[in-house]
Design a protein around this nucleic acid. Structure first.
Length: 722
DNA sequence: ATGGACAATGTTTTT
DNA sequence: CATTGTCCAT
């Protein structure tokens, strides 16, 4: 089956055929990593005779999984049946449903999305009589999520401060509430699977024996839970094949730890390490810019990326007056490329740090009457009407799901207000039933023993709704998901509720129609399959590749994609790097990687854009260009004069000088009284600062280690905002 | 119970 | 500024 090695370079070949023992493939951007992964799967089946049943391949997005499946099938035909191929989360769902009898939930559990999770945190806070202002649900949830990713249960939650103590209690309550709802959050899927494999050696054995080959994509994005899972699953045969690139690790905030790459080499000391450094995507100029940017990150394994593609066009650096002008520039530039026949609209992508930045771009496209497509942002599944319909389905599937019950119990309004809901919950608590179960019982009307416990109107409203849910439940096995949706929409009068005479209502109803179309695909599967699928889709999964129009997307969403023409906008301090990363060197390093990921998406043309003024809180304020721009050698750039090193704001005079890649501006960055943070020594106060031998020498009094003298260009100091 | 008006509050990235 | 929550009048 030598065709599986056709067209591969030596390193790729080596990787594809490395099927024994642990293998770590460090794959630079555009180095054919997906190719290596798919061929390696095919090679194991075709050449080594492995049964697909014995192969596990995990990815982070459904799209990546789907693509991989299609490409393997294209290589070796249809004999991929039995292959386990999916995202970490979907693979875990499958395992957990099968093994639920060993775990504290049953196999019909539902998956709570981000919204539900916040609701549960709020509920927990209220149950514990804690102030939502003081303990913001999002921040508490982040702490819980972090703990789960580290495989820490409530009792293991590390306590250093009083706040930690509170978080631990909320975590405990949150945990209970989820189990009472027979629901798992995203993190639980990983946590419980890891727990299962650790606690039940016979189960672990069963899977580890089955999976003779374990392959992982985007390994640098794994968190502790995922890493542990992989180790368990590969523990018997030890044929684990991990592909990743620490320089493209951009999900630290989600628990991802690129140090797992190093950990892998330690845990599997016999691992073969294969480097893929030849880039097949970008021109050399683009690649050089990318390397110049990423080389500034400390403590990384240097890779020397090269391409056979030639230098290519220079990178365009554009300075716009403000964010509106920035958007206009992008639209103009695309229009002009298309007009000159240099690109198709669909070749172009515009990338930005935050979703909020998409708005002005969208407006600019609309003003120019040009179509575009947007990845993510107001996600389809995040829309209110979609969440409503899904909540109905989940309630029908699982009446224990309190989050869904509360979401739809009065939508459309059916005279069940806060008072009545509180009464329902109270009585449920007294009887030991879940609110949803109580509601179902009330659905029997006056036959229900609980009917008399409510004040007249309330009892009737509840009974009516309970009756509806009873009916839907009775039908749920006969009807397809689509038929059930239609039945619910009809029974509750959802179209009338949306008021399709208004533009907004009509658009919402359109979205419901879109959901119906998606449900139509599930005519031969059950409701739960549909619910699983929509719980685990990602933004990238909804990207429509057919339309020949420009794509707007965040830098995060751009990972794994490539485009002939790439615009990266908002290249300013506080945007990229984002201001939330300023006081943490690790976070700052990740901002740089994010920029690196963006640059390396480009095949032929790269446009880097920054605006001198940007609207922040509704007010437009002056900006400084991103520090990352300073790291790109000027000879790779063209466009208007390269304005460099503005930190300190005297750039206009310096600009006159010949563009020299010399030292930064002679202006103190640190002044006495400033608070700064050093990666090693922690926080300290600047005592004084002066210029010496072309560098800034700063004396700092650190809280932990006392007085230190540092060179500003060498010490990785960060400002601490007071 | 409902809906509207106002205030506060917060803005990264997402399986 | 744009969303979310809270208060108040119906």
């Amino acid at each position: 089956m030598s065709f599986l090695l056709d067209g591969l370079n030596e390193q790729q070949r080596k990787a594809v055929t490395a099927c024994q023992g642990p293998v770590l493939v460090l794959a630079g951007p555009g180095s054919g990593k997906t190719r290596v992964l798919t061929r390696s799967i095919a090679y194991r089946i075709e050449t080594l005779g492995a049964r697909p049943y014995h192969i596990l391949a995990v990815t982070f997005t459904n799209k990546a999984a789907r693509e991989m499946g299609e490409r393997v099938e294209k290589l070796i035909g249809a004999n991929t049946h039995g292959l386990t191929l999916g995202t970490f989360h979907s693979v875990c769902v499958r395992i957990l449903r099968r093994q639920a009898e060993r775990l504290p939930f049953d196999s019909h559990f539902v998956i709570f999305d981000a919204d539900d999770q916040i609701r549960v945190v709020k509920r927990a806070l209220r149950d514990l009589d804690l102030d939502e202002k003081q303990y913001r649900p999002h921040s508490i949830h982040a702490a819980i999520s972090r703990a789960k990713n580290e495989l820490l249960l409530p009792e293991d939650f590390p306590i250093k401060t009083y706040r930690d103590e509170v978080v631990r209690r909320v975590y405990e309550q949150y945990h209970k509430l989820l189990l009472a709802s027979n629901a798992l959050d995203f993190d639980d899927l990983l946590l419980w699977t890891a727990f299962l494999l650790a606690e039940y050696p016979e189960v672990c054995q069963q899977y580890a024996r089955r999976y003779q080959h374990v392959l992982v994509d985007e390994f640098q994005d794994t968190n502790m839970a995922q890493y542990t899972l992989l180790k368990h699953l590969a523990s018997f045969h030890r044929n684990i094949f991990a592909v990743g690139d620490a320089d493209q690790s951009i999900y630290r905030w989600r628990g991802a730890d690129y140090r797992n790459v190093r950990r892998f080499e330690q845990d599997f000391s016999d691992a073969q390490v294969i480097l893929l450094e030849q880039n097949y995507r970008s021109t050399q100029n683009i690649l050089d810019a990318a390397m110049a940017v990423i080389d500034q990150n400390p403590q990384r394994r240097r890779k020397k990326l090269f391409t056979g593609r030639g230098a290519g066009k220079k990178i365009t650096l554009h300075e716009a007056h403000d964010d509106r002008a920035e958007a206009a520039f992008v639209v103009d530039a695309i229009a002009s490329l298309v007009a000159r026949g240099q690109a198709q609209p669909g070749d172009c992508a515009i990338m930005y740090r935050t979703n909020a930045q998409s708005r002005l771009l969208e407006e600019a496209f609309m003003r120019a009457n040009l179509p575009y497509k947007l990845v993510g942002a107001q996600r389809f599944y995040g829309r209110r009407e979609i969440k409503d319909v899904i909540a109905y389905l989940r309630l029908v599937h699982n009446p224990l799901d309190e989050a869904s019950l509360l979401r739809v119990i009065n939508v459309p309004p059916r005279r069940i207000g806060a008072k009545t809901v509180a009464a329902l919950r109270t009585l449920a608590g007294q009887t030991g039933l879940a609110p949803g179960e109580l509601l179902l019982d009330l659905g029997k009307g006056e036959d229900s023993e609980y009917f008399g416990k409510f004040r007249g109107r309330a009892a009737l409203s509840l009974a009516n709704f309970g009756h509806l849910v009873r009916n839907w439940r009775a039908l749920r096995d006969e009807l397809t998901p689509l038929q059930l949706i239609d039945r619910i929409l009809h029974d509750v009068g959802y179209e009338a509720y949306l008021d399709t005479s208004t533009e907004e209502g009509l658009s919402r109803w359109d979205n419901v129609q879109e959901l119906r179309r998606l449900a139509a695909d599930y005519h031969d599967r059950d409701l739960l399959a549909f619910l699983d699928e929509i719980a685990l889709v990602s933004d990238q999964d909804t990207l429509d590749e057919a339309a020949n129009v420009p794509t707007l997307l965040t830098l995060h969403a751009a990972k794994g994609l490539e485009f002939p023409v790439v615009f990266i906008v908002g290249l300013e301090e506080r945007t990229l790097p984002h201001f939330r990363s300023f006081d943490d060197p690790e976070a700052m390093a990740e901002e740089r990687r994010l920029f690196y990921v963006g640059i390396t998406r480009a095949k032929d043309r790269l446009f880097l854009v920054h605006a001198l003024n940007r609207a922040a809180y509704g007010y437009t304020e002056p900006t400084e260009p991103s520090r990352f721009l300073e790291d790109i050698p000027t000879h790779l750039l063209n466009g208007q004069g390269v304005v460099r090193s503005f930190r300190g704001r005297e750039g206009t005079t310096r600009q006159q000088n010949a563009p020299s890649p010399g030292p930064p501006p002679q202006r103190a960055r640190y002044q006495a009284g400033m608070k700064v943070r050093h990666p090693l020594w922690g926080e300290g106060m600047v005592l004084n600062s002066r210029w010496q031998d072309g560098d800034e020498t700063v004396d700092i009094f650190f809280e932990k280690v006392g007085l230190k003298r540092v060179a500003a260009s060498l010490a990785k100091l960060d400002y601490v905002n007071e």
